[in-house]
Each structure stands twice: as C-alpha cells, then as structure tokens.
Write a protein that binds this DNA or RNA. Sequence first.
DNA 1: TTGAAAGCGCTAACAG
DNA 2: CTGTTAGCGCTTTCAA
Lengths: 331, 331
Amino acid sequence: MSRINIRQVAKAAGVSTATVSRVINGTGAVKPETREKVMSVVEQLGFYPNQLGQKLRNSQSGMLLVLASNIANPFCALVICGIECEAEKRGYHILLCNSQSNPHREETYLKLLQGGVVDGVITMDATIRTDALQALIGKRPWVQCGEYKPGVAPFVSIDNYAAARQAVDYLIDSGRTRIGMMSVQDGYMHADERERAYRDSLAAAGLSFERVVYAQSVKSFEHATTAYEALMSGEEGCDAIFAISDILACGALNAAVKAGKTVPDELAIVGFDGVPYSEVTLPALTTIQQPMFEMGTHCARLLIEQISGQTHDNHESQLLLPWTLVIRGSS
Amino acid sequence: MSRINIRQVAKAAGVSTATVSRVINGTGAVKPETREKVMSVVEQLGFYPNQLGQKLRNSQSGMLLVLASNIANPFCALVICGIECEAEKRGYHILLCNSQSNPHREETYLKLLQGGVVDGVITMDATIRTDALQALIGKRPWVQCGEYKPGVAPFVSIDNYAAARQAVDYLIDSGRTRIGMMSVQDGYMHADERERAYRDSLAAAGLSFERVVYAQSVKSFEHATTAYEALMSGEEGCDAIFAISDILACGALNAAVKAGKTVPDELAIVGFDGVPYSEVTLPALTTIQQPMFEMGTHCARLLIEQISGQTHDNHESQLLLPWTLVIRGSS
DNA sequence: TTGAAAGCGCTAACAG
DNA sequence: CTGTTAGCGCTTTCAA
C-alpha cells in the first residue's frame, strides 16, 4: 500500500495541489463546492498528508525532546506527565529519551535536535556532563528540569538547599542527634546541594555526629540496604536518616524494619521527592514534596515560548517552585 | 542563527551537494583529499544535516510510537526500557504518548503514524477501544504489548489466564478458603482473563466463597483502601486477596496492616506484575512476575521486522512469554 | 478563487 | 571519483 500523496488527490479531484493544500489546512479561500469535492476525494482515497513533508516545508517539527535518565523513576514519570499535558495544549508532541545512564544514547537523541527533528529539549538529570550537553545542544531551545546549572539555560526546579535544610532541621527539632544521610555520588548538583544543607544544619545545631553514605545506585533497593548498614555501623548508629530520594528512603525503611528497628521510635526516616508510593509504605514516609507535575508544565511552557522566539527575563525563566515538608509516620 | 544547509557546505568546499552527501553518509567513493576538505568545512560551519530532509527523501522516519496509558506505572516504564534498548540497537528512536487515559491525545499521536512521522506503533493498554484503534492504525506496522486482541496485530504478552490460575491455585493449596479478588473494571482483556481464572480456580477447588471487588482506579492507593474494605466486609472477610496488579496489592497490604491484620497469617496477599517495589513492601509481595523488559525488546524487534517488510508466522508474532510466581512474605 | 512554479534540505540514478 | 538532475511531499508566493 504505497502512500497516496497530495498530487494524486489533486488529480482525482481535478484541481491543483495548491487547492488541496488550502483545503486540508483551511488556509486561503476556496469555493465551497471545490472544498466539498476535495474533501470527498480525500475521504475516499484515505489521504493523510505526509507530515515529514509539511514539517520540512514549514521548518517546524512540533516535537519536544525529553531527556530523562530513568523513566522508571516515578519522579521523572510525573514530571513527564506535566510536560506532556502542557505540550498537548500547545500542539506539541514528546520524543522521549530514556537514557538509562547511557550517554551514547543521549547523544543520538540530541542529534535529532541538531537535525531539526525536534524543536527543543528538556533535560532532567541527564547523565552527560553539563558542559558536554551544552556543546551538543548549542544555542537551541533548552530548559533544564530539576537538575540544572545556572546561566546555561532556563531552568525549573526547587531550592534544594533550603528544602534539605528544612528536612534536616525538622529532624533536629524533633530531638534527633545522630542524623545520617543517604545520598548518591554521581556529581549531581541537587545531591551536592542537599548534602551541603545537611552539613550546614548539623553545624548550625552544633551536632557532632555527621555521617554521609553513598548508595551505589538509586535504582536498586539492595544498594540501599548496604548503605543502611553502613549508616548503622559502629558503636553508635543513627537515630535518623535523611535520604536523598524516596526510593532510597524506602529501601532504608525496609532494611531497618528487617533489622528489627522500630520506625520512627528508634529510627526516623525522611525522604525526598514525594512520589506516590511514599504514602503507602508502612509507616508512610515523611518527605519533601516536590511539585513534579507543575515542574513539567512550566518546563514545557518555557521551552515552547523559547521556540516561538519569546524572550524571558531571568526571573521568568529561572523558576524555583515551592515545595512542602510532608510529615508522615516515618518520623 | 539560520541553519546552514548542504548547499552552503558544498559551495564552501567547492564541490557538489552530492559529494557532501556522500561524505556525511559514508556512501559511495570519495577521494580522501576531497573528503578531508568537506569534513573540515562541515566542522567549521557546524553543519548538521537536516534529518527532516533526509527522512523525507528516504521515506523512512526511524521512529517508533509507543502508546501507554500511564508511564508512571512501573510496569509500563519497564516495558518501555526494553523497547528503547532494542530500538537503539536497531537505530530507532521512541516517540512516547503517555495518554493518561485521554483518547484524544492518543488520536493526535496516531496521526503522526498516518503522517509518516513514525514508522510503526506499539500499544500497551491503550484507552481507545481496540476497534477504534484498528481504524486509526489501519494496515500500518503495529505490535500489541500486554493487552491484546488476537488477530488484529502481532502481540507480546503472557498467558494471563494460566498465570492467574497459578496464583489462585497457590493460595488454595496454602489452605486459604476465603479468597477475594481485587480488580479494575475498564474492559481490559487481561483483567477479564485474570478474573475468569480466579473464578475457575475456585470452582475447580469447590470453594464457595467468591468475591470480586473493582477498584475505581489503579492509580490511587485510596481506591485500593476502599476496595479492601469491601473485600473484608460482611460476617466473613477474606483470608486471602488476589490483586490484579502490584499497585493494588500494595494498597491492600497497606490498608490491611493499618486495620490491624497480620499479613500473611490472617490475610495473604498476592499481586501481579512483579514491579520493583513489590520487593520492598513489608512484608514483600508474593506476585506473578512478568518479564517486562523482555516484553519490550520482543515488541520492538517484531515491530521493526514488520517495518522492514519481514513477515512472520503466527507462532513468531504472537508471543506469550513465560512468567514466574514469586513467593515472598505476603503469603 | 485557482493554478503554475519554486523551493524546504536532502539523496540517488545516471553520466561523465 | 564527481557533478547534474530529478524528485521525496508539501506550502506559498505570484499571476491570472
């Protein structure tokens, strides 16, 4: 079934391709009878305009690239929902690169940006270093989501430092004195910021117990168990754990209960992100709730505005959205 | 920064566009010196071939559409990982439609298929009814994943009936006599099959207690709580729950523990899917483990083969993959 | 209101 | 080994 094209339609309708184009796009004036005729032929032949042709001609693809390291991470997934929602409203579609920490894969997707297949890109925690990313993206429309570097492109995130301070301060205020932190060591700004906040909070409170353990990966719960053990080792284990993500917090919670600890009495646990299943662990996780969906919609909006040539002041294009400390049973 | 095109490169290098094309694609023979020269100009001018032009010319987009109702569902996410992995190996990219049960959104994405922007489609639990789907997709390359209708297109799934029978039979064999089922009522074949298996297993064992409750949505844990209460209501509540998904099972587990039930002693819970967090609930969930990643790779492979014009016998294109009953603490 | 023709950026057949 | 030319399917001046 070789595709049928606009010329065949034109021929069958006894008009020119220009007229067919005008009819299917509703541009320009066409005599009602002619329109009728064309429409009926379109119907009859089952004609669908080739969008590659259209896009090429209009040099506008109507597609947004989303670079995420791991779509199975509910944080990413929810941001993407927001992106997709806003994109749809504005007539855009989403090309998803689920890189799985595979920089090569990210590169091949970015070639689509260079090649004009997508009009712009939203990066979530990309695995390529920001400067390499910058080189690949160049001056093309770009919005950073969550993980960002100021100055290189607009971004939407939260104030990681302040949020983490709030979380740790809350633990301190609840009387915890041996607060450990479970993080990852992947060079992410957000991880560094949260760790800095952790240290600053302890220092501000004059607490001497300070212990940061890096889980080998966010993905696996086993790694969280290993990290948990490291945190509880030695003469004095922690009486509270601040985890850099709900996934890790969830792993820690699991390990703790298995090890016979009572949560929150013997050990408090606080997560980060506010993904759906943080509500359903037993006990439910205290966590920093990020506005994931809104982050997505803002990203899409900023990106599309950028594509349309709109310029923004910094305060419009560098968004730090509000978060909430949600207190639940784990603390 | 107006894009620079192949003609400008050709001109600057003092060759024809054909030669530039040959150089950048590595097709045809080009004298080394000429190649050098062209390459250096390409470098210098920062030329990236317009892929819209390429794709149009080659009438091949190299893109696969994935229709998923909810990417935040880890089952979907993991299948997509598999799809992406195989697609990458074969030089394809993924266009993701995260429909959120919005049929209109699915339609706009399917227009991209009709319009040649993508070469084929993989549907996971699409929200459009299969026949409408069929009308929109027509004879274009299509593979169904998980949820399928035999005959309309190749599919990759598991034997839902047999798997569910195994799960329920297992509960029966463990001595449970009041087994309830938590399902959803969205007209999905997989839900119907699992429910049919549930009823058949009970009948085969001569058990009279039969109770199916439909959660209003898979998405929300609250709905699982409501469904849980319905299952436990009346004089005799269940002593086991077979849930149609791990998400629901997780919600049931949570509700049960909150209600003071001990799991698995007083109440056994079995889920379905085998998503990562089924390992980390307390107790961990017994579940039917679907080979999600492999389902994804098979889908991508079949689709790409179909696109390349390869034909399959039914036994090659109607794949029911093996599953496993993973027994954990919840039963 | 309509058609002819040019061109979006690219590749491939053909000739040289 | 390289250039000329035609054309992928579409839209949009420009004329009529």
